[in-house]
Design a protein around this nucleic acid. Structure first.
Length: 476
RNA sequence: GGUCCCAUCGUCUAAUGGUUAGGACAUCACCCUUUCACGGUGGUAAUAUGGGUUCGAAUCCCGUUGGGAUCACCA
């Protein structure tokens, strides 16, 4: 049987990293076994729909290369792939389940609280009085137009067992399971029910989802069993954490895929990083493309403890991807971040200098801000122990540099370097004692995309001389 | 609170009874260097805790502690 997995997001907002990782593992489980990856939109809660949310889902998946084999936009043999369009399909199954004894009609009020004859509160989901109603009586009340729900019926004795691919055997007392609503008053199914029906109808073989479903999975199994359907393989995933106490959640402004993109992270790097958040290949490699991952992925190497999302390591990995880009690819990607630059700047050369120096494309902006305008900087920057420079050296050397630059004819990197080196030798100074202060004076920054002469080339002769001049004035 | 789940460096993890507990990020030092990076070399750093079982436990069992999840006509 071919493996079929589905990614079934609800379109309620942005795609966060935990969601994306779930989708990734679903994709990899299918693709590593030559199976099919299905996209299904779960929009049964009409109140929570967010406009444009499905487009974000489509775009994200496409951008990272996780192409689906069946889905709302491309169809497939088991459509439609949007739950709201399947609405009419669920109710007959709900009624069938009542016939089969797996559910009953319930007339409890929405808050699920009612009082018995002594005024004590009774809770439907735990011991629903409606389940003792005869089917005839229930049907009669429905016929009268009374609002109702279909509620799962659970025999509260014994224990449930099932095997999860990640967590192993899970055992839960039936007594712990509540008799949840399957079909709402509005005729829509709840997630619990729609999920089971759709997964079965769509031939899903591996149900992959967050570990928060671990305790409620027996309820799903009861439904499969009542219909006489084969249970799927379960793969529950540990949560992705923001820190030791909190799950990653977008509500607190935690990193969403969109945020990361905006900051200049590459989709490939993000995918690579999150693949390793809860899974490992069993060897010490860690740079993998999506295609690599489909070859080596295995469910057995999935981890069961929560993993903290570490932006620092992602950033490192993004830097690796950036450095592996061809010079031209990097240039193309860097271009949008270099818009503030004056016309005369050689962006291609600048990009080449930037490539090994940034770990996200977003860092380009702060790396190059000095080009347009010299920042306000502290003269402390002139101090560098290894270069044997300090403010005094700068005072002494900057006027000499100014003269050299003023007399310079050939304004290219090699010529400039040769001239300044000659200057250093003539004055009996180390190269760094000339070049370091020059770089600070030209940029006003501690770290820059290139050395003094490279900056001078970028800035041009006139601007370079101006800046050296300003620096001299600043020191006196 | 009931129930379920989890527990190796700060972080991601490897080691399916026998290893000097390995790697990566971060961090520190040094090297390289025209600054800063990149790159290279090395260092610091972990089996939560108490009991068992065993010749031998990070690994198996029990307790404790800590953490997470779940208990909606949300998904």
């Amino acid at each position: 049987m071919t493996t079929r997995t589905r990614f079934a997001p609800s379109p309620t907002g942005y795609m966060h990293i935990g969601n994306l990782r779930t989708a990734l593992y679903e994709y990899l489980i299918a693709k590593s076994q030559g199976g099919r990856f299905i996209l299904r939109i779960e929009d049964t809660d009409q109140k929570r729909l967010v406009e444009g949310a499905t487009d974000i889902i489509y775009n994200t998946l496409k951008m990272v290369g996780m192409n689906w084999d069946e889905g709302p936009d491309i169809g497939g043999d088991f459509g439609p792939y949007v739950q709201s369009m399947r609405k009419d399909l669920y109710a007959p199954y709900a009624h069938k389940l009542v016939e089969l004894g797996g559910a009953h009609y319930c007339f409890c009020a929405e808050r699920e609280k009612q009082l018995d004859e002594d005024g004590n509160e009774i809770i439907c989901k735990f011991d629903d009085p409606c389940k003792h109603l005869s089917l005839e009586e229930a049907k009669a009340r429905i016929a009268k137009g009374e609002p109702y729900t279909v509620r799962q019926t659970i025999n509260k004795t014994g224990k449930s067992h099932y095997e999860d691919k990640v967590y192993g055997i899970i055992e839960i007392d039936y007594d712990e399971l509540d008799e949840g609503v399957l079909l709402k008053t509005d005729g829509f199914p709840t997630y619990n029910f729609a999920n089971v029906i759709d997964d079965h109808l769509m031939g899903i073989t591996h149900v992959v989802r967050g570990s928060e479903y671990l305790p409620s999975t027996p309820k799903y199994n009861l439904i499969y069993d009542a219909f006489g359907w084969e249970r799927p393989v379960y793969v529950h995933l540990p949560p992705v954490m923001k820190d030791a106490q909190h799950k990653l959640s977008k509500r607190n402004g935690d990193a969403s895929f969109q945020d990361l993109l905006a900051k200049g992270y590459l989709p490939e790097a993000v995918i690579n990083y999150i693949a390793l958040l809860g899974w490992n290949p069993g060897n010490e490699e860690e740079i993998f493309s999506l295609a690599d991952l489909t070859k080596i992925f295995s469910v057995e190497r999935l981890n069961k403890s929560p993993a903290i999302f570490d932006i620092v390591k992602l950033t490192w990995m993004n830097g690796v991807y950036l450095r592996n880009l061809s010079a031209d690819d990097f240039y193309q990607k860097a271009l949008p971040y270099m818009e503030s630059l004056p016309q005369n700047v050689d962006k291609k050369a600048l990009a080449a200098a930037l490539q090994p120096r940034v770990e996200t494309l977003g860092q380009i902006v702060e790396q190059i801000d000095f080009i347009r305008a010299l920042p306000d900087y502290s003269t402390e920057l002139y101090f560098n122990k290894k270069m044997k420079t300090d403010v005094e050296i700068a005072k002494q050397v900057l006027p000499l540099i100014k003269d050299t630059l003023t007399n310079q004819v050939a304004w290219d990197n090699d010529s400039l370097f040769a001239s300044l080196k000659t200057l250093a030798e003539a004055k009996g100074l180390k190269n760094g004692q000339i070049l370091y202060p020059a770089r600070i004076a030209l940029s006003g920054k501690e770290t820059t995309p290139g050395g003094a002469t490279e900056l001078a080339v970028i800035l041009g002769q006139q601007e370079s001389i101006n800046r050296i001049d300003q620096a001299i004035k600043k020191l006196n």
